[in-house]
């Protein structure tokens, strides 16, 4: 079982992951599932009506706008990092939070390393599957490494210019 870390009210904690990631060829198990965008578009409605809680995994080249009208029914949007250096999911996360008003879970999956923690939190991610063996403590320390940030962000911390204005 990979480590699964949740951020709620600025507190990081180790959590049980209620969702099962299901491949496109796999049969749907009972319970909550995370499926691809393609599968969601084909089978999403059916799964929801059967009572599954459904999350959607977006690959880094897939546009989050594709989910716009379905977001209220989606419990998790899992944004994939195929490689540590692929930064598209940061934009996807921000668009989910800021433009599409998504309130559900935004989860980082794939090549997720502690060095990205601060960036992720500030773009609105609130669930993490670290691939580098990070414990909650390590993850939290990495996310809070910097006392200040120069830009506005989605984690509720004031930007430097706002701190200065106080």
């Amino acid at each position: 079982m990979p480590t699964f870390i949740r951020l709620h009210d600025r507190v990081f904690s180790l959590a049980e992951d209620p969702f099962t990631a299901v491949g496109d060829e796999d049969t749907i198990p009972p319970g909550d599932v995370i499926i691809s965008l393609t599968r969601f578009q084909a089978e999403g409605e059916g799964l929801l009506s059967e009572g599954h809680s459904v999350g959607v995994r977006l690959e880094s080249h897939e546009d989050v706008e594709a989910l716009a009208y379905d977001l209220p029914q989606i419990a998790v949007v899992a944004l994939a990092f195929p490689k540590f250096g692929d930064g598209r999911a940061y934009t996807s996360a921000r668009l989910l939070r800021e433009r599409l008003g998504y309130k559900g879970e935004v989860r980082a999956v794939g090549d997720v390393l502690r060095e990205q923690a601060g960036f992720m939190v500030r773009c609105g991610f609130d669930a993490f599957e670290p691939a580098d063996g990070s414990t909650v403590e390590v993850w939290e320390a990495a996310a809070h490494r910097f006392r200040h940030a120069y830009q506005r962000s989605d984690d509720g911390r004031p930007a430097a210019y706002a701190e200065r204005g106080e």
Binding site: G85, D86, G87, Y90, T91, R94, Q116, G118, F119, R122, C123, F146, A149, Y150, Q151, S153, A160
Partner: peptide, 13 residues
């Protein structure tokens, strides 16, 4: 300079 330092969205271009 300030805006681009560890920008949350644009640090992994």
């Amino acid at each position: 300079r300030q805006w681009s330092s560890l920008h949350p969205e644009f640090s992994w271009l």
